[in-house]
Design a binder for these strands. Structure first.
Lengths: 195, 195
DNA sequence: ACCTGAACACCGTTCAAGT
DNA sequence: ACCTGAACACCGTTCAAGT
């Protein structure tokens, strides 16, 4: 079930209609509504199915907490970018077991790293927020070369109104992976200073 | 125009249909398509209209850079929470002048604070990502008391699978404003350490 | 118990036709 | 130049009816 759903979603979020999904499953027109209450439920199932985490690769030596967190969050982001519809879906849907497992791992690792009990929830949520924001933004900002050209045009024409971001070429920066890692390091530095 | 749009949106994102908007404007059925190319354009206009920034209040003494950034970002978040549809819209739409002005202020202030040129874009984007993620999450997680009750039930039943986040009561934490500020401080600590 | 097709109440958008 | 209404090609969901 969830497998077929995922296949369909691979061609876009708005591309998933109940009729089309039924077709894809070979089943008749509206038989889906026997197994599932609404379209939202289908989305919840598909979302959690995509976010299973196999864990960090086991090396001989013990991994430090930071590598553990970075690995899991980069994998989280990669999972969502592999299924672009998932990023815009995650913040507004039910939290399935795979998502909760990731949050648990995050909390457990931060706790082990010595983050104070009182800072734990704030730490978890700030990482969640960062990953969600980064992934949603990434998923929707690299649409076409046309957009890139438009941004370029805009930047030059905007030079006097927005000198700083024109100077840093903010809208042209396309090292998304590097920027994600860099910002993640900023945040981790703040959450567990000096570790 | 944008004013009337905003009024309509106050009753939900899916509540804005072209037909309903036309009605609200007194205008006839489909006259909108003369002034605007598509529904997407309406959304772009409404979004930027909502995000005008009046700037930090002028006090006698100079504000430090950190207060400036925090004020602008808290205001940004507040603007989006005041118009709940905007949070889910911002990451995927065109950047209007008001949005660019906020990014410019962000870059200018961070630069003034001594953030290295090479870190500037990463700093701006990481703050953007954090604010977007936090606001989208906030806007979609406080739906009803029923949800809260469900989360509670879930938590207790989940205690053994997810001990850490069950222990910190992650899903019950409702000090959204405090958590936002705390995570923002983490991030700013990392971006401009020791300042 | 499980599936089906027609039907309902909507959408965004187009387009010939009006003033 | 600006507006209009009917029409097109869709949606999610319901529901009586089938096996």
């Amino acid at each position: 079930m969830a497998a077929a759903v995922e296949l369909l979603d691979a061609q876009g979020l708005d591309g998933l209609t109940m009729r089309r999904l039924a077709d894809r499953l070979g089943a008749g027109a509206m038989s889906l509504y026997w197994h599932v209450g609404s379209k939202g439920e289908v989305l919840d199932l598909a979302l959690d199915a995509v976010l299973a985490y196999r864990g960090a690769p086991q090396t001989g030596r013990a991994r430090d907490w930071r590598a553990e967190v970075v690995h899991m969050l980069e994998d989280w982001r990669a999972c969502m970018l592999r299924h672009p519809w998932s990023a815009s879906l995650l913040p507004r849907r039910a939290l399935g077991p795979n998502i909760l497992a990731r949050l648990e791992l995050l909390g457990e690792t931060l706790s082990r790293a010595g983050v104070a009990e009182a800072d734990l929830n704030a730490g978890i949520w700030s990482l969640w927020n960062y990953v969600m924001g980064a992934t949603i933004t990434r998923g929707s900002f690299d649409l076409s070369d046309e957009d890139r050209a438009a941004a370029q045009r805009r930047l030059t024409e905007l030079g006097q109104h927005y000198p700083t971001i024109a100077g840093t070429r903010l809208l042209l920066d396309d090292d998304w992976d590097g920027a994600f890692r860099k910002g993640l390091d900023f945040l981790l530095d703040g959450i567990a200073p000096g570790r």
